[in-house]
Amino acid sequence: MALIAEGKTIEDALISAMKQLGVTDKTEIEYEIKQDKKGGFLGLFGKPAVIRAWVKSSETSQYNTRPEPVTSLEGRASREPQLSAEETYLVERAHHHLQTILEHMGFNPTITHHRRNGVFFFNIDVEEADKSGILIGKKGQTLGALQHIINRLIGLEEHSETIKIVLDVSGYRYKRDNFLRAKAQSLAATVKAKGEEVMLSPLHSSDRRVVHATLSEDPNVRTYTVGEGLYRNIVIAPNKQKRNGVKAASKPPKPKRHYEDMS
């Protein structure tokens, strides 16, 4: 049984639908957006938001909101608060855009998502597993492009700042992050042992974040970047301890630096 509900915003329409359906929890109903609220001035004179809503039955659950135990980016998902109607709406828009774009690209995707710390992780599995490389691209370039587009498409809809969508293909990013973490730690060990800096090959900003974050807890090394734009390298350096506040009289000689390919 479905009904049509109207409201100033999607949220208002949902609340109205819930009242009419006699449910108290947003998760008990499903809905599709017939019309997003349009134009108007200060919320006046615009067209209302219209949704079609119905009580959820277990078979009709369209989206898998459970975390994927194997491919989930961050491992076990912690307890997350229920999605607000707004978030549900945004996730559904993202899901829809992603599905449509991938279909236009000639893929037949299976998309799952879960949320962790306010970030939505979407994992894409494609039917032709051998073609997933095309979707990832060189150094994850294509995946990054798709992620940018999806975030932009969601950003154009209202209340965008609170949502961030991270895409993954068959756990690629998950594996890459694990690789980067392990590599960063082993390089840090070398840096500590030899006392010499290591410079990494240029990495994407999301990859750099993983390296920085991994080593931020290690007091014996520090990380910094050199270069700009596409040629930005991380340097892992030994963290010299200050000796009783006495500064060295002269600058130490420029440390030796090794180069490490991260591809």
Partner: peptide, 14 residues
């Protein structure tokens, strides 16, 4: 650039 990257990927697939 993202649009071009996606287009290239779609073309490469075909």
């Amino acid at each position: 650039r993202s649009l071009r990257t996606l287009l290239n990927a779609a073309a490469a697939k075909m």
